[in-house]
Amino acid sequence: MNDPASFDSFVLNYQDMVYSTAIRLLGHEAEAEDVAQEAFLRAWKHWAELKDGQSAGGWLKTVTRNLCLNHLQRYRNRWTLFTDLRRSDDDDGAEPDVAAPDEWEDATLTADQRSILEGAIAALPRDQRVALVLFHFEGLDYVAIAEQLKISLGKVKTDIFRARAALRKKLQPLRETVGV
């Protein structure tokens, strides 16, 4: 029999992690909340196996990521169309030739800079954002991302490259302030 009290404490411990993963991948608060709820409901159904294990957090993160990717896959046709339109509006096709950072060891961000960075990530086209989040936040490599998203390795590299380029374009003032 499942124990509601221990599950409630599990929810409180992991809700920020689950919601962060969902909001960064989906970029939409209401959808992220729906996915987070679904992830915890799945955890509840497997609570008998999860409550004694050490890997509940990892399990929950993987389930959340897969739920988000399924959600995105379901609406892929629609968002591909829109991101293509946005890309043609935003990009001129040429990548900015920005010099590499000289120092990056001391790149400590202030609260304002973090907020700017979150905004810049949220403003990325969806396919670029998803690839970037999977690479930098979820720790997947290019091959794993290509398999998860069912796209080519080349597209993954291009999306991440473009995402970084867009980020550094928007974060140029931040880079100068932080001194990197």
């Binding site: 920020d16 919601y19 709820q37 990056w104 961000l109 973090r114 960075l117 974060l171």
Partner: peptide, 20 residues
């Protein structure tokens, strides 16, 4: 590497109070 360093400094989003 720079992107990775700055992105990993970002704290987790706080879940909305309605989620739990």
């Amino acid at each position: 590497k720079w992107t990775d360093q700055v992105l990993t400094q970002l704290p987790a989003h706080s879940a909305p109070a309605t989620l739990a």
